[in-house]
Nucleic acid binder design. Structure first.
Length: 417
RNA sequence: GUGCUAUUAGCUCAGUAGGUAGAGCAUCAGAUUGUGGCUCUGAGGGUCGAGGGUUCGAGUCCCCCAUGGCACCCCA
């Protein structure tokens, strides 16, 4: 069988790379507008890092991690997400000892062992931002503001912002007990999977898609009724700040998210362009993560965005710009005897900063012209018998078909960048 | 991890009731003895995703594996 890449992984081919640069550039620029700085960490960590943060009972840790023993016998995991790694790094480098707010963003590959589907890969890319050091609702609002700003900068119009609050740890605990009690007394209406979740992670029952348990779920107690005053105030202020900056949202009491470390605000961005995997960004507040990692409590909010899913949306909405021609000059030679002269011409132009292609396959004159047209070169630099004899080159504008002969001196002077 | 579905030239796809493969585009070359895009002509390119089975004979039927897609699960 023909050699193949690993299931659920993809090559980014040269004709796609410009899209990736385009996406990266916008993410970078928008993040910087909010004062965020790029952060990079290794793509693997000790397995501990993810187990302790994401939660032992989550699917990500239970069945989706690429975990292996290295030659020293340590358990290593390819990162399934970034937040845990950044928190580890911040602790390690004592960045949270300084009393500043930390604003960072990242872009890179992540790994989850799942059955591939459209918009779901085993190696995928995420952008994300983390705002560390503020317990206040204005930080939540700032993060959501950044996410929306990115969406706007890409020109995406067709999306929904769903938001919810899980409350602080006290109110979440109260809510969880109430939920467990409720579902236990209605256990005959629950699916097999939800019965499992009742033990492992009862909150997750809420976003089940099984129609048979829709009724039990919609009659379940709502988080909103279990908030203490701190939780309620926090959530209300977040919503108020969003409203005042004109961000439309939809409160979704069933939104829970799959990572254990969230408290207070959680949110998700969804798009109809995506099908079943309709969420392309998600995040929330994780005030308890630092203490879970054995550090002094440090409040934080963040979110992540799936780049492949973002690209799907951009493609479907025709929001990817047409990129201009890559090549400035295509050197066309009449005979292979002119090769060293052609190289000289190419280097003059390259020294002036132009992108120059030279024939390497010994193809016919006609083929070279065709190729120059195909790669959308702006000019063809033609070297025929006459030009070779005169130490000159004919520069043909491929769009207008205008052609002017230059001596090498004039060429250098005329085409300066 | 479960179910359904697809897999034929580089790409998009035909392939009739099982009788050892075709088109368009792309590529290369020519029509055009110094000049691309349009048109025309020709050429190269496939052990029909891998393996096994039924059959005189399988791209076509059966099994299994791999990969993609859809749904579940979960998430970006």
């Amino acid at each position: 069988m023909k050699i193949q890449s690993i299931r659920g992984t993809r090559d980014i081919l040269p004709d796609q790379i410009q899209q990736w640069h385009y996406v990266y550039d916008i993410l970078k620029r928008t993040s910087e507008k909010y004062g965020f700085e790029e952060y990079r960490t290794p793509i693997f960590e000790k397995t501990e890092v993810f187990k302790r943060s994401i939660g032992e009972e989550t699917d990500i840790v239970n069945k989706e991690m690429y975990t292996f023993l290295d030659k020293g016998g340590d358990s290593i995991t390819l990162r399934p997400e970034m937040t845990a790694a950044i928190v580890r790094s911040i602790i390690q480098n004592n960045l949270n000892q300084i009393h500043n707010i930390i604003r960072v963003w990242y872009f890179g590959p992540f790994f989850r062992y799942e059955r591939p589907q459209k918009g779901r890969l085993r190696q995928f890319h995420q952008y994300g931002a983390e705002l560390i050091g503020s317990p206040f609702p204005e930080a939540d609002a700032e993060i959501i503001d950044l996410a929306i700003s990115i969406i706007n900068d890409f020109g995406i119009k067709d999306y929904q912002l769903l938001i919810n609050s899980l409350g602080n740890s006290v109110s979440r605990q109260n809510y969880k007990s109430a939920l467990v009690e409720y579902f236990n007394s209605n256990i005959e209406h629950l699916s097999q999977e939800s019965k499992q979740r009742l033990i492992s992670n009862p909150l997750r029952i809420l976003d089940s898609k099984d129609p048979s348990e829709k009724d039990v779920i919609s009659n379940a107690p709502s988080v909103l009724d279990y908030f203490d005053s701190e939780s309620r105030d926090h959530f209300e202020l977040v919503l108020e700040l969003l409203k005042s900056s004109g961000i439309n949202y939809e409160i979704s009491p069933q939104l829970v998210r799959g990572l254990d470390y969230y408290s207070h605000t959680v949110f998700e961005l969804r798009s109809n362009a995506l099908g079943s995997q309709d969420s392309f960004a998600g995040g929330g507040r994780y005030d308890e993560l630092f203490s879970q990692m054995g550090e002094k409590p440090t409040p934080a909010v963040g979110f992540a965005m799936g780049i492949e899913r973002l690209l799907l949306i951009l493609e479907q909405s025709a929001l990817i710009p047409v990129f201009p021609s890559k090549i400035d000059f295509y050197i066309v030679i009449q005979s292979n005897d002119y090769l060293s002269f052609a190289r000289k011409v190419a280097n003059i132009l390259r020294e002036n900063g132009y992108k120059v292609i030279i024939e390497l396959a010994r193809r016919s004159f006609k083929s070279q012209m065709r190729d120059a047209n195909k790669v959308q070169s702006k000019y063809a630099a033609i070297i025929g018998e006459q030009e070779f004899a005169d130490n000159s080159v004919a520069i043909k504008n491929m769009e207008t078909s205008e052609q002017i002969v230059y001596t090498l001196d004039n060429l250098q002077k005329t085409f300066k960048k």
